[in-house]
C-alpha cells in the first residue's frame, strides 16, 4: 500500500524536476544580463576609485530645495569622486546630533540655528560641527500674500495697511481677527510677537507643515481667497505661484534679539553649509567639493522644480542639472 504511493510520489517528483530544469533553461534565455559581469565591473570601478573619498553621509532635510542641493552635491561626489553617498532623511536637529557620532557629515543648506550652534560649535558647544561657509543661496523670509491679492489691492504690500483688510482674512480658525498663517515649526519665526508689537488685528494660526502652507496658498490663488502667511524663498512653489512679499518695518541688527519685542522684518539669510568637524579634517576628496560648492537661488529652483513639478526622482533631477551645467560643476571640483 505504502510502497506504490511512495514510488508515485517519486516519479511525480522526478517529473517536477524535469519541469523545473526546463523552466530554468527558459528563464535563463530571457534572464538578461549576468550579475557576475556587473560585479566584476563594480570591483574594477571600486579599485580605480581607490577609496580617496570613502563614505559621504549627506543629511537630507525635509524640503525640496534642500533635497536639490544635497542630491546635486551627492551625485557629483558619487560620479566624479567615487564616493559612497548615503542620503539620510532627517530633520535639522536630528541631523546636527549626528555630526558627533559620524552618522552625518554634511548639512548642505542651513538657515541659521543659533541654539544648535551653541550646542555643537567649537567654543560654544562640544565642537562636533563647524560652519563651512555660505552655499550661495540667499534665504528670504517674510510675510507673503498670493499674487492676485497683491494685484487687486496693491497697498496690502505695506504692513501699515494690513489692519484695514484684517476682517477679510478672518477664517473659522481666527476667532474674528484676521488669520495669519504661521509656518512649519522647524523655522525661526516671530510672527506672534510681530503681530502683537505692531498692533495688528491678526491671530497667528500655525499651518504646522510646509505641505499645509503650500496647499493653503495654492487654493487661495486658485479661488481668490484671502490669505497671508510666513513664507520664504528659494522655494520651488514660487515658480508655480509667485508669492508677493509684504514689507514690514525693515530689519536692523539686533531687532530680533529678544523674541518678545520683535517688531521688524526678517533679515536676509546667507544659507550656510555645516559639516562634521571630524569629517572636515579627514582627507576625503569630498571635503573640497563641499567647501567649493555654491550656487544660486535660480539654480536650486530649477532642480527643485524638476523634482516637485516634473515628477523626477532627486537623482534624475540632479543628474540633469549637472549635465546642463558642466562649467559650474567643474568649478567646484577645481583645487
Amino acid at each position: 500500500m505504502r510502497q506504490p504511493a511512495m514510488s508515485t510520489a517519486r516519479s511525480r517528483g522526478a517529473r517536477l524536476g524535469v519541469l523545473a530544469a526546463v523552466a530554468t533553461l527558459a528563464l535563463s534565455a530571457c534572464g538578461g544580463g549576468s550579475i557576475a559581469k556587473e560585479t566584476e565591473a563594480n570591483e574594477k570601478k571600486a579599485a580605480a576609485a581607490g577609496g580617496e573619498c570613502g563614505d559621504l553621509n549627506m543629511a537630507v532635510n525635509p524640503w525640496v530645495g534642500y533635497e536639490a542641493s544635497a542630491y546635486v552635491v551627492g551625485t557629483v561626489a558619487q560620479d566624479q569622486l567615487g564616493c559612497t553617498v548615503n542620503y539620510k532623511e532627517l530633520k535639522e536637529d536630528v541631523a546636527w546630533q549626528g555630526f558627533g557620532t559620524g552618522e552625518v557629515d554634511v548639512v548642505i543648506e542651513d538657515w541659521g540655528h543659533p541654539d544648535l550652534e551653541k550646542k555643537f560649535f567649537e567654543g560654544k558647544g562640544d565642537g562636533t560641527a563647524m560652519d563651512f561657509g555660505p552655499q550661495g543661496n540667499i534665504g528670504i523670509i517674510g510675510w507673503f500674500v498670493p499674487p492676485w491679492l497683491a494685484e487687486e489691492h496693491p497697498d496690502i504690500l505695506e504692513w501699515e495697511n494690513l489692519n484695514k483688510y484684517a476682517k477679510e482674512f478672518a477664517t473659522s480658525e481666527s476667532g474674528g481677527q484676521g488669520q495669519f498663517l504661521g509656518a512649519d515649526p522647524s523655522y525661526v519665526q516671530f510672527d506672534e510677537a510681530i503681530v502683537s508689537n505692531l498692533d495688528l488685528d491678526f491671530k497667528v494660526v500655525f499651518s504646522g507643515s510646509e505641505a499645509a502652507t503650500i496647499e493653503a496658498f495654492r487654493k487661495a490663488e486658485e479661488n481668490k481667497e484671502w490669505v497671508i502667511g510666513y513664507w520664504y524663498e528659494p522655494q520651488y512653489f514660487n515658480a508655480e505661484v509667485a508669492m508677493q512679499r509684504v514689507a514690514l518695518p525693515p530689519y536692523e541688527t539686533g531687532c530680533q534679539d529678544d523674541p518678545q519685542t520683535v517688531a521688524c522684518d526678517y533679515p536676509q539669510t546667507e544659507l550656510k553649509k555645516i559639516v562634521g568637524t571630524d569629517w572636515a579634517e579627514s582627507d576625503s576628496t569630498a571635503v573640497d567639493l563641499v567647501q567649493n560648492f555654491t550656487w544660486t537661488n535660480d539654480d536650486q529652483n530649477v532642480v527643485a522644480a524638476y523634482i516637485s513639478s516634473d515628477g523626477m526622482s532627486p537623482e534624475e533631477a540632479a543628474a540633469k542639472w549637472i549635465e546642463d551645467n558642466p562649467d559650474k560643476v567643474e568649478a567646484w571640483l577645481a583645487q
Binding site: T24, G31, G32
Partner: peptide, 17 residues
C-alpha cells in the same frame, strides 16, 4: 525544487534579481 531553481537563477541574471 521550484524555489531552489528560482533562487539560483535570481542569483545569476540581473533581470531576475
Amino acid at each position: 525544487v521550484v524555489t531552489i531553481v528560482a533562487v539560483y537563477v535570481s542569483r545569476t541574471y540581473v533581470d531576475l534579481a
